[in-house]
Design a binder for these strands. Structure first.
Lengths: 234, 234
DNA sequence: GGGTGAAATTGACATAAATCAAATGGCGCA
DNA sequence: TGCGCCATTTGATTTATGTCAATTTCACCC
């Protein structure tokens, strides 16, 4: 990420820039959006690929175009906590801090659209409303983080799992109600997102299956059988 | 808070507005700061007093002037998680969401400076840099929230307590190194901040005391005896 | 100074989740 | 088809933290 401009990353000029469809830029009018989009470059990442690291110079602001990105923190002994999942449309990083404070890694294959922080700032001189857009995204992320504080600090393992499944379901609302979807995270990642161990995650999945609240098939396809009852557990 | 403009709250016009000294407005030049400050009103709160509630219309953005404010979320059955502590200089609330998403309550006696969100927005028409200031504060809060996600999700009770004490110590750096300070939170509040029970908090305080890493006296005065060892536990 | 009530501590015990260890399942690939 | 590698599940056991119940401490006030 810190050498995103170097050739071996093979960046594409982002012509029909994805930000157009993202609330990210909802404060910009069409011509400003055009101009801003021209500053972006998209890049593809494979499953498990590192996107940026804690401590590295914060040169780029990203926007998830496709796939899911996990943002996580590490303790010295390797304990890991995922602090955010970036879905399409979500902002990645910030334009304030001099360094990244997190690790970001691709969950499955992803496409991410990057903007140089420096360019955003100079663009903002004539289009200051860009800051309000970014503020809006950041406020949203703060809300999610605090929701998760409640989950991590006060919910039981079962409640955590139920909340997580409902969160995933939220992101498939468009598809069609009660539609099955693929669980994008491995059990270990779910554990690192919920502050649990892999075994506890597995056991509670089994519980929910035996209670017929969910159904899992064909690898990792998940169907929520009884949405209301699941919600009651969350 | 939703009737902050009504008489019985007895608001003072904030003449020498505290925001002047807060990074909150660091993007504003002097005359703009003057103008902005004139929009503010300070209000005092007593220990335990509710400042705003989840679900109420978000009409005001606050800035903590004096004392500490706890921001928390509740589950239906009363389980509580403090998601943020607001120290002097910290922003309270946001200018994006239509409603408050949290409860805010005074920890000890506090003074808070309020701005109407609507006025901030109209002020921003001629001073758009205000958005960058608020973005900066919000990004900082997001960083703290995510740091706490790591704590809640992955740290042991002992590590949580140690981290908490170091956090408090951070806010007394100015006073003088190794200076004792008053623990502003009750045990129950500490528990609700760390995702623990009051008994676990108490036991680990006792542990740390018997290990001579900290000393507590005269009610709730705390002295960190061995800073480095405490840090090693965090 | 003694009484009152809230807050904090301490003890005994229960339990949810972690840990350790095996077994099973799924999938690419020779 | 079967081997090998992960990921996942399941089981047995331990442990950190929660729960329930006294007891102690402390601030406040008459």
């Amino acid at each position: 990420m810190n050498n995103i401009t170097s050739n071996h990353y093979n960046l594409d000029k982002c012509n029909n820039c994805p930000v157009r469809d993202l609330s990210f830029c909802n404060a910009l009018d069409n011509s400003a959006l055009e101009e801003f989009s021209a500053l972006s470059k998209t890049k593809s990442f494979q499953d498990g690929q590192l996107i940026f690291s804690e401590g590295k110079t914060n040169e780029y602001l990203g926007s998830v175009v496709q796939g899911i990105v996990k943002i996580y923190k590490l303790l010295d002994d390797g304990r890991q906590q995922i602090v955010s999942l970036g879905f399409p449309g979500d902002m990645l990083g910030n334009i304030i801090d001099p360094e990244y404070n997190y690790f970001a890694e691709s969950v499955g294959d992803t496409k991410i659209c990057f903007y140089q922080v420096a360019r955003i700032n100079s663009f903002a001189e004539s289009n200051p409303e860009i800051y309000r857009s970014i503020l809006s995204k950041t406020t949203e992320q703060l809300g999610h983080a605090r929701e998760w504080l409640l989950l991590l600090g006060r919910k039981t393992a079962q409640e955590k799992i139920a909340s997580f499944l409902l969160l995933l379901a939220e992101h498939h609302k468009g598809d069609s109600p009660d539609q099955a979807f693929k669980i994008p995270l491995k059990r270990q990642e779910i554990a690192d997102f919920l502050g649990l161990t892999i075994e506890t995650v597995s056991r509670h999945f089994s519980n929910l299956k035996s209670k017929q609240l969910i159904r899992e098939y064909a690898g990792h396809m998940l169907a929520i059988v009884d949405y209301d009852q699941l919600k009651a557990l969350a």
